[in-house]
Structures are given as C-alpha cells and as structure tokens.
C-alpha cells in the first residue's frame, strides 16, 4: 500500500464505480506514514475536533472525577482538597435514610407506569396516523402532534394547570354551574395519572417518528397478498404490521430498560410542591433538595454516584441484551 492511496484513504476504502458508500468499513491496518506525516496531514481535522472535545472534557469528564466527594464530609468552604475523607460513612447514612428509599421507590413506580402506559401510545398513534390515506391530512396531523415535544416542561405543566387545575378552565366551568372544582392537579392519588397524561401529551406524538419510518419500510406487497388470501384488516395488523414493527419495539424497550432511573426531572421538580414529596420525589429531585436546598452535599453526591453507577450497569446490560437479540443497541458501531 503506497502513500498516495493512504492519503486518499477515504476514496480507497470505498468500492469504486459510484456505488453508494459503505459507512464505517474499517480501513485496512497498515504500516502507513509516520506520526509526523500524519500530523502534518490531519492537524486541521484535529484542530476542528478540539473545541467539542475540550467542552466535554471540562464539563463531563472533570466533574465525573468530582464524584470523589461521595467519600468525603464535603463542605463548600473547605472544597474537595480540604474536606475530610470519611470512607463509606455517607453511604451508610444515605442507605438508612427513609427519604432516599421513598425517592427510589417513586422513581421505579413512575418508570414502570411509563413503560406500561406511555410506551405503547406512540405505537398505536403511529399505526393510526399511518392509516390516514390523504398525504396532506397526515402531514397536518403529524405537525400538530410533534409540536408539544418542543415545549418546555414549565410550559406543559402551566398549560395543564390552566386547563385542569383548581383555578383552571374546567374548574371554572364546574364552579359556574354549581359543582366542586377539580382537584386532580394537587391530589397525590391522581399524581401518576396526571404525570402520565402530561408525558403522553408532550411526547407521544414525537415518539411516532421512528415507528412511522418502520411502518413505511414494510413491504406493501405483503399486505396485498394477505388481502388477496382473505385476511381482514385486523389480521393484517396482527400478522404483518406488528411483526414489521417488532425490531424497533424490542430495541426501544431494551433501551428504555437501560434508562429506567432517568424518569425525567423538571416535570417532577415543578410539581413537587403541589403533590407533595411523598409521591413526587424522584432520585434527581432528592439529590437537588438534599444538596442545594438543605446543604447536605454528601447525601446528594452519594445518591448521584449510586444512580450513575447503577444506570451505567443497566445501560451496559440493556445493550448486551440488545446484541443478544440481534439488535444494534446504542454503542455497537458498524
């Protein structure tokens, strides 16, 4: 392999004749030019990557090291270098704190409810949208249902309050007609119902994108043959559509399992006072309140570290599972 080929390795790694490029094909290992020559060739590319890498280094990798305060009696005046090391004392304290376990329990309950009641909604909605025959109508509907994804949680919670809250539109009409106003926006028993509805309102439409793409990829001839063979609408849905979506569903389900401790944050933070911390405290709001409201940095740091480690294990396990089922997961690169 000579230098000319290496210098144009991008062209060389690709089949000639104008066929579509095959991404990620590893260029063959070779004893190429020296480091100096490669630096002279690629220094501009390296320089370009520098700002992003630098930002991630400073705001991702450096603070990750800061997790050592979980093993300290940290206080802000002495800083990381001055605070005393206390081993696992903070862990013991946290693991015997009932408020921590309340937050863990709530997180898991909310995640399960999301999995059961939120996850299927985009699938159903995608099938429904896909069945709309008029292209124009479908685009209009898609534009409408995608939109709330781009609203902030403050905005979504505010809109819900304005319509369903104690002083909201529905309550206002009930009151004018002599009925009691709605109380679901402050009733702890209605908490799961309210937050799940908010999630569906905000993100179910956006969630359809990937399923719509999968639906479009299903071979239309399958439907035609099935119809000719006498399969009705529902049998076609069961035997063609759902199996066609299966890989995407399995993949997203597995990824969701790996992400189970991240149920969202702002949504619960914003409604913690209205519903009470008994039902609405999740791990992230617990960490925030322990550290930055109460000043107990140790508890927050330990809870954050535990959450991060368990989350990492879950993601790795979920990817393993995805690979075992023949899916790509998030980090297997071609």
């Amino acid at each position: 392999m000579n230098t000319a080929v290496t210098e144009r390795s991008r062209g060389a790694a690709r089949p000639s004749g104008g066929s579509p490029p095959e991404r990620g094909r590893r260029p063959p290992r070779r004893r190429g030019p020296s480091l100096g020559a490669r630096l002279r060739r690629d220094w501009q590319l390296l320089l370009m990557a520098l700002p992003a890498i630098g930002l991630l280094a400073v705001f991702h990798y450096v603070p990750t090291l800061g997790n050592v305060i979980a093993f300290q009696e940290y206080n802000p005046w002495d800083g990381i270098l001055g605070s005393p090391w206390v081993g696992l004392t903070q862990f013991e304290r946290l693991l015997t704190d009932p408020r921590f376990w309340n937050a863990v329990g709530n997180t898991l309950v909310i995640a399960s409810v999301q999995l059961v009641f939120f996850f299927p909604v985009p699938i159903a909605l995608a099938i429904l949208l896909d069945s709309v025959l008029s292209r124009r109508m479908r685009l209009v509907l898609q534009s409408i249902v995608y939109m709330p994804h781009f609203f902030s949680w403050v905005l979504v919670v505010t809109l819900f309050q304005q319509i369903l809250g104690g002083a909201g539109l529905v309550s206002q009409m009930l009151r004018q007609n002599g009925y009691a106003p709605l109380e679901i926006m402050t009733d702890p028993d209605a908490f799961l119902l309210v937050v799940t509805s908010q999630m569906i309102w905000k993100d179910a439409g956006w969630g359809t994108i990937i399923f719509l793409a999968a639906l479009a990829a299903i071979d239309q001839n399958l439907y035609e043959s099935a119809a000719v063979d006498g399969a009705g609408r529902w049998r076609r849905l069961w035997h063609i559509t759902l199996p066609g979506l299966r890989p995407v569903i399995v993949l997203l389900l597995i990824l969701k399992l790996g992400d189970i401790l991240n149920v969202g944050f702002e949504q619960f933070f914003l409604q913690r006072d209205a519903f009470g911390s008994g039902v609405s405290e999740v791990l992230d709001t617990f960490i925030y309140h322990q550290s930055l409201v109460t000043g107990n940095f140790g508890a927050g740091a330990v809870a954050g570290l535990l959450k991060g480690v368990v989350g990492l294990v879950l993601i790795l396990a979920a990817n393993k599972l995805a690979h075992m089922m023949g899916e790509n997961g998030i980090y297997r690169r071609a």
Binding site: P63, T64, G66, N67, G300, A301, G308
Partner: peptide
C-alpha cells in the same frame, strides 16, 4: 452517552 457526571459535581465545577 453512558454516564452523566452527576448534578452535584457539575454544580461544584
């Protein structure tokens, strides 16, 4: 993608 630095360490940074 695999891990977040954590709210408190990031705040301290």
């Amino acid at each position: 993608f695999l891990f977040a630095p954590g709210m408190i360490p990031l705040y301290l940074l």
